[in-house]
């Protein structure tokens, strides 16, 4: 019985306490370090080129087949990434591709703002993946 009265006063006190709620569009929850979001193609800070050479290992690794990579040979026999497409609707954010990448050319950003009306918009091209949205934390 005493506990019931205590519970009553807990509820009563809650009215005057600060709510735990994070007011979403204004405040944002800081996502912890190393959290797995959308893939991000790393850019070499010196030459401003994409590190990825398009070897296609991530394509083989990915169980869902959500990555498509194509490489193109430039002059002097140098191989350059031609096309890198990520199908978000298939991705399960397991992070295996990052782990297996030998060039260390991709990482996972903190990007979670992903809902789309059209399923076609969920396919991200190279230009969108390079965007530095994920380099610093992009919550929400």
């Amino acid at each position: 019985m005493l506990r019931l009265i205590k519970n009553f006063f807990i509820v009563f006190g809650n009215i005057f306490r600060k709510p735990h709620t994070i007011i979403y569009p204004r405040e944002r929850i800081i996502i912890p370090d190393g959290s797995r979001g959308v893939l991000h193609l790393k850019v070499d800070p010196d030459s401003l080129e994409i590190i990825c050479k398009g070897c296609g290992l991530c394509k083989i690794i990915c169980s869902q087949g959500c990555i498509t990579v194509q490489k193109r040979a430039e002059d002097k026999g140098r191989e350059v990434l031609d096309e890198f497409c990520l199908d978000l609707s298939k991705c399960i954010f397991c992070g295996n591709c990052v782990e297996f990448c030998k060039m260390n050319a991709i990482d996972m950003s903190y990007k979670y703002q992903l809902a789309e009306f059209d399923k076609k918009n969920l396919k991200l091209e190279k230009t969108e993946l390079v965007k530095p949205s994920g380099t610093i934390r992009d919550f929400w």
Partner: peptide, 20 residues
């Protein structure tokens, strides 16, 4: 009408989708 990718998406992502 709306697609939310993620496996599973975070709760925030769901709220974002609803707001959108």
């Amino acid at each position: 009408n709306m697609h939310i990718p993620g496996c599973p998406p975070r709760p925030e992502a769901f709220i974002y989708a609803i707001l959108k």
